[in-house]
């Protein structure tokens, strides 16, 4: 049960700044090693269909950077160059500069970094995907293990497995869904779900 002796105080208004702080607090304060956290925010499109779109995300990365790089190196040379090119373009767009990018931008883009970046372009309608399913059913979805991710009905979960993630979790809140992913095998924890309920209990 998520009940505690004292009810959680209402959280402050939802802003991207406060979202970022909550996602960071969730990951940095967890016992488990999560690679990233994303908040998928609910809204309605012109036909009153519920859409979950990018709210904000916090990327921590893998504990073992060497492991991440060795995984990234399994991608083809063409894929590596494509990622670098996209990152350079995104960097130019953000910095507003056409000057050559610094060395950091040209560093190899790992699989989980790429998965996180691509996530910014995604959305889920009518209960689709793991985030949509969690929101639609108001029930957390916890998928742990490469085999379970690979055999998921959700394309995003299958993609996650290809990019080296072993655990993907979607926990619904009032205004959306908190998704966490890890390259480690992490078993279900009520502690994490309670933290999400407290941190993302905004109106």
């Amino acid at each position: 049960s998520a009940s505690t002796s004292t009810p959680a105080a209402p959280a402050p208004a939802l802003t991207q700044e406060s979202l970022q702080q909550r996602l960071q607090a969730l990951i940095e304060g967890a016992r488990e090693s999560w690679t990233y956290a994303i908040f998928w925010q609910s809204s309605y499109d012109y036909s009153a269909t519920t859409v979950l779109g990018w709210g904000d995300g916090y990327y921590k990365g893998e504990e073992d950077k060497g492991k991440a790089m060795s995984k990234a190196s399994s991608s083809s040379l063409a894929e590596k160059e494509h990622r670098k090119k996209v990152l350079r373009e995104l960097n130019s767009m953000i910095s507003g500069s056409t000057a050559p990018a610094d060395d950091a931008v040209d560093e190899e883009v790992t699989d989980t970094e790429w998965f996180f970046l691509v996530s910014m372009t995604q959305s889920f309608i009518n209960g689709s995907g793991l985030p949509g399913q969690a929101f639609f059913d108001s029930t957390p979805v916890w998928v742990s293990g490469p085999d379970r991710l690979a055999s998921s009905m959700c394309e995003r979960a299958r993609q996650a497995q290809v990019f080296g993630l072993q655990t993907m979790v979607c926990i619904p809140s009032a205004n959306g869904v908190v998704e966490l992913g890890s390259t480690e095998l992490i078993t279900q924890s009520s502690d994490l779900m309670n933290k999400v309920r407290v941190l993302f209990n905004f109106n």
């Binding site: 990018w54 767009m93 610094d102």
Partner: peptide, 26 residues
Amino acid sequence: MPSIPQARKASLARFLEKRKERVMNA
């Protein structure tokens, strides 16, 4: 990769900045 909507630029800018820090500290 499709273009990133304006609303997501803050997330992207933060990701790129933190990535730069990670690479520098590696």
